[in-house]
C-alpha cells in the first residue's frame, strides 16, 4: 500500500499515466478556478483573485511541461536506458495528484482570513480581520495539510523521474535537484507573465 502511495509508477506509466495525468491537471485547473487557488510555480500553493479559467489551465500545464521537458532532456543525456518521453511526461503528470487535493483548500475562508490577519497584524497591510478560534485551528490544519501534500508531490515527482529515466543513487538526486530548481525559476517567470496577461 505504502509503495502504491509513494511510488505508483512501479505499476503505472506510459499512455495510461499520460491520460490520467492530463485529467488530474485539468481537474486541478477547474477546481482552482472555483476555489481561487493557484500554483505560481511547480510547488507553490496560493490563493488568488478570480482570474479567467484559461489562466489556471495554462499555469497547470506549464508547470507540468517545463519540469517534464527538463527531466526528459536530462534522462536522454544521462540515462543508459532507452527513455520514452511518454513515461517521463505521463508519470510527472500523475505526480501532480496531491495538488488536485490542495486546489480544494481555497474553498475555506479560514485560510484567507488567517492570511489577512497576519498581513494586518505584522505589516499593517489591508484591513483588520475578526479571527475566531475555529478559524485559527482550521487555518493551521490546512497549512499543515498543504505542507504534507507538497512533500508528497516532491516524493512522487522524484520517484516518477527515477523509474521512468532509470537513473539511480546520488546521481538521480543531484540531477533531480538541478531540474527541480530550474523548473521553479522558469515556472515562476511564466506565472508572473500569465498574471500580468490575465489580471
Amino acid at each position: 500500500m505504502k509503495d502504491k502511495i509513494i511510488n505508483p509508477f512501479k505499476y503505472v506509466a506510459g499512455v495510461t499515466s499520460f491520460i490520467t495525468g492530463i485529467i488530474i491537471i485539468s481537474a486541478t485547473a477547474i477546481t482552482g478556478y472555483f476555489s481561487k487557488t493557484h500554483f505560481p510555480d511547480i510547488i507553490s500553493v496560493k490563493t488568488c483573485p478570480g482570474f479567467s479559467i484559461w489562466y489556471f489551465f495554462l499555469q497547470g500545464f506549464s508547470n507540468w511541461i517545463v519540469l517534464s521537458l527538463i527531466l526528459y532532456l536530462i534522462a536522454v543525456i544521462f540515462s543508459k536506458s532507452s527513455v520514452r518521453a511518454v513515461d517521463i511526461f505521463g508519470t510527472q503528470a500523475v505526480a501532480r495528484f496531491p495538488y488536485l487535493i490542495a486546489s480544494f483548500i481555497g474553498f475555506s475562508d479560514s485560510i484567507n482570513k488567517f492570511g489577512q490577519y497576519i498581513l494586518w497584524t505584522y505589516m499593517q497591510n489591508g484591513a483588520p480581520v475578526d479571527l475566531s478560534a475555529p478559524d485559527v485551528v482550521i487555518a493551521i490544519i490546512l497549512m499543515v495539510l498543504t505542507l504534507a501534500l507538497t512533500i508528497w508531490l516532491v516524493i512522487l515527482m522524484f520517484n516518477a523521474f527515477r523509474v521512468s529515466a532509470n537513473i539511480k543513487g546520488s546521481k538521480s538526486i543531484v540531477l533531480f535537484i538541478v531540474a527541480f530548481i530550474s523548473s521553479i525559476v522558469i515556472t515562476h517567470y511564466i506565472s508572473n507573465f500569465l498574471i500580468f496577461k490575465f489580471s
Binding site: 509508477f9 512501479k10 506509466a13 506510459g14 536506458s81 513515461d87 508519470t91 521512468s164
Partner: peptide, 13 residues
C-alpha cells in the same frame, strides 16, 4: 508481471 513498462525495462537493464 502487473508492473509498468519502465519498471520492467529497468529490471532488464
Amino acid at each position: 508481471l502487473k508492473l509498468s513498462y519502465p519498471t520492467v525495462r529497468n529490471m532488464l537493464d
